[in-house]
Design a protein around this nucleic acid. Sequence first.
DNA 1: CCCCGTAATGCACACGTGTGCATAACATCA
DNA 2: TGATGTTATGCACACGTGTGCATTACGGGG
Lengths: 334, 334
Amino acid sequence: MPVTIKDIAKAAGVSHTTVSRALRGHSAISAETTARIRKLAQEMGYTPSAVAQSLLAQRTRTIGLVITTTADPFTVQVVGGVEYVAQTAGYSVFLSSSHNDPDREIAVVETFHRRRVDAIIVTSSRLGSLYKSRLDKIQVPIVLINNQEEGEYLYSVAVDDVQGAQLGVQHLIELGHRRIGYVGLTNRPKSNRRRRQGYETAMKNAGLPLDPSLIFSPIPDHDIFERGHETLEQILQRNVTAVFCYNDLTAIGLSLACRDRGIAVPERLSIVGFDDIDAAMYVTPPLTTVHQPRFELGQLAMEMVLDLLNGQEVQDKTVACHLEVRGSTAPPAH
Amino acid sequence: MPVTIKDIAKAAGVSHTTVSRALRGHSAISAETTARIRKLAQEMGYTPSAVAQSLLAQRTRTIGLVITTTADPFTVQVVGGVEYVAQTAGYSVFLSSSHNDPDREIAVVETFHRRRVDAIIVTSSRLGSLYKSRLDKIQVPIVLINNQEEGEYLYSVAVDDVQGAQLGVQHLIELGHRRIGYVGLTNRPKSNRRRRQGYETAMKNAGLPLDPSLIFSPIPDHDIFERGHETLEQILQRNVTAVFCYNDLTAIGLSLACRDRGIAVPERLSIVGFDDIDAAMYVTPPLTTVHQPRFELGQLAMEMVLDLLNGQEVQDKTVACHLEVRGSTAPPAH
DNA sequence: CCCCGTAATGCACACGTGTGCATAACATCA
DNA sequence: TGATGTTATGCACACGTGTGCATTACGGGG
């Protein structure tokens, strides 16, 4: 139904070849013919079919972006970064969510492959290690952002969890805290292990003892309010003055639980989060947290994709975090 | 480079026609041939090319989704709703952002048309009225979600701003407030007018006077903290006991300004927002707000698209809001 | 033995675009 | 005038898939 170059050719009394060349500015076509055809195309409302071009060029200028879910506040800005770079480079982005389900993650990748995307970007992948083997079958470069799985994979961009966590814990130590807890999360095994490692490194560097009883692991199924209360219960028994949390949602849940129980933050308990989601700024007290450059992560991933498609060598990248000091941390009361 | 049906045909010693039929389960192909070819396709890692199929079928099973920006907390869940329904129906979604720039909105729609998407969904469009005329050129149905522009357009899904605002103001009236302010926003003209209309209707229904000096319009360029302080200044001069705000960000800005100035919320000033963004739950006090069913809006829009593509008649839809009563509202102090 | 019906498969084209090569018209030069 | 070069255009094919129609083989019935 849309106008094709054949329609224009018929209207202009030339072959479709000439139309194609005129529109692309081929030098062999006379200036007047080119002008006439372009004007005609304009009038008839011609838009070239990217589908046909893709088929011929064996390249779609399209990438697939797999996210966990739009409900995850982390994801959103990453999408923004990817889309921004993609749009600038003339690429279009397919978006689809895996809902944290490995089967759906495979299905989504499969769909993208059917669509013949030039590359795939996956956030928080649960099966990063699988791609290496699958990649022989599908000839599509896959870049992983904050891959959650150990093992072999090809390309990845990730935030420096260790450095970020270290930053947060150092801040607490500098404030004078000595008994500092770590509140983890079990359903993000890789980054949890790294952030905990950053916590431990900071403690060791400061000459503080590592007490395993100060590592807390709330049940991931419960919502953040329940988890906050459960964790707070344990924390109070351990007599810590500050905690570093795996992420902001965990930290906020804990902070709200403190409010319920009448525990003053930061006077009685200092809390540091990780991620710097929007809500971190709005809660009371505003949350001190490790800022994760989400937009930049997305940008870097897409830039890596462009490099790959240009045939350049690429290396895995990690990007540093910085600390946002707000109101949830203070020196310990004595 | 990927495996095609011709490759399979060569390997099986048949024509590509037979392969195509075998894979699609055509009855004319013998059972054993079908089995043999399917097994071969499996082994060779064949994935049909959606590009080639699209070209032939003149249909891509693809839709384009235009959002303002991923930084807008409203947008995200809408994307989730659209994507959920699309994925279930076997459609893929192109995502692109307009950054609230009409020129880019046009460019994005143009790109989608080049990609031959079957339909386009636009959130918070700035040029809804333009589509009607452009639609003659591009033969693609466009569904607008919460269109921000007056004028003619074809299909739309929108939240019932009037009903939602009425709900929020009624709540304040029922609590006993009589001098109630409205804090608007000028860069969303259509929905702002409607929400204000809901405010006025609720006031009239309760027999309360409409005082134009209780309508506040902060400068949209400033960030929410500045706007909060500026608005609060005016509010305090007017002696109101409660305000209904155009959206949650405005309400939160105001609430934070109150905290700075030592104005107790809700004891001295009750605040109602609109949208129910994530942060509304986390702020202190938690914000009473009109919940906007964002995910559902996305779902409805995509379902409307599916109806359109099935050749069914569709009608514009509005969807009702409900009130989330939290901690930022209370009876007026006397 | 011939005709016809049925089963299984292939040929050729279509979808919209781009490109190598051939073709045609015309100018230039020896 | 004939050979060569230049300019402008068209033919035919390719990309991967699906389908109408033709073709082939075979079996059964008269």
